[in-house]
Simulated assay, not measured.
Amino acid sequence: MRDFHVHSNYSDGDFLGSMVRAAEAAGLEGVGVADHCNVASRESPEAMRGLYGFNLDLTYERRRQGIERVRESAEIAVYDAVELDYDPRDEDAIDAFLAEAAFDYAIGSVHEVGGDNVQIASHFADLTEAERDAVVDDYFDQLVALVESELFEIAAHADLVERTPPLRGRATEDHYRRVAQAFADSRTIPEINAGRALTEADIVHPSEQFLTVLREHDVSVTVGTDSHRPDEIPDRADFLEGFVDETGLEPVVPDGLER
């Protein structure tokens, strides 16, 4: 059992060493530190980086030094990864940054549609039903573009709109089939993400319907707890282990890592 999606203090998680020790204590064989990063040069993303301090594009070398130090004492594999915000307009910048930084693997995420974070319900509360449906359409258009870009080994929480009440339940089987076909034709693989699985929301990404469609297209998956604190890792890892056993899945590791 390896967890390919945790965060550290280099974005919005706890201290790097604490996250790795928690993964080790949870009995994992490996953990991937995939901090948030955005390399867009537009005004809005730059303002958000300043607000939240997601500056891994400036600090990845320092974090890599920290990962190397942690690896010296860790008894599990520790991967140097990144979770990058994806917008089709940023493909060239993303490609250049990934080539320069040479992470062990990269996770791509669609977090925004039209400049609005799809996890913030207030952005969509006053929209009409048709406008909300259009947001979901745009989300899946961007997700397909992310997969087809071939920039990433992993696509995170591939139905993130399910976290947001005004957008929840609006995805259709047609959306899922488009994305599943894109995954089937790409090296990028989706993750089973437990970031909201043990909350009141009780959401596993992908949803049961989406996962069924992915399996019909013979799409491989990987797993990630999406943990931000050490105490989240053990319960989420246990959940994922039970989930893949129950569903009969055999998660794979990202391209380029040892099997």
Rank of each mutant, 00 (worst) to 15 (best):
M1N: 00
F4P: 03
V6G: 02
H7P: 06
H7I: 07
S8Y: 14
N9F: 03
S11W: 12
S11L: 07
D12S: 04
D14K: 09
D14H: 09
A22M: 10
E24R: 11
G27I: 14
L28Q: 10
E29W: 04
G30Q: 01
A34E: 10
A34V: 07
D35V: 10
C37I: 05
E43N: 01
S44N: 07
L51C: 05
Y52G: 04
G53C: 09
L56M: 13
L58Q: 15
T59D: 06
R63H: 06
R64N: 06
R64C: 00
Q65Y: 02
G66C: 00
G66S: 03
I67Q: 02
I67P: 00
R71Y: 04
E72A: 15
S73T: 14
A77T: 13
A77L: 05
Y79A: 04
A81K: 09
V82Y: 06
D90E: 13
E91K: 11
A93Q: 03
D95P: 00
F97Q: 04
L98T: 00
A101Q: 10
S109D: 07
E112M: 14
V113I: 15
G114H: 10
G115W: 12
N117L: 10
I120N: 03
H123N: 15
A125F: 08
E129T: 13
R132W: 11
D133F: 06
D137G: 02
D138W: 05
D138Y: 00
L146P: 14
S149Y: 12
E153P: 08
E153I: 01
L160I: 15
L160D: 11
V161E: 01
E162M: 13
R168V: 06
R170E: 07
R170G: 05
D174P: 01
Y176G: 09
R177P: 00
A180Y: 13
S186H: 07
S186K: 08
I189G: 08
P190S: 05
E200A: 14
D202L: 01
H205I: 05
S207W: 12
L211A: 10
R215D: 07
H217F: 15
H217C: 06
V221I: 14
G224E: 13
T225E: 08
D226L: 11
D226Q: 12
S227K: 12
S227G: 11
P230A: 06
P230C: 08
E232R: 08
E232Q: 15
E232H: 13
R236M: 13
D238R: 14
F243R: 11
F243V: 12
F243S: 09
L249D: 04
P251W: 10
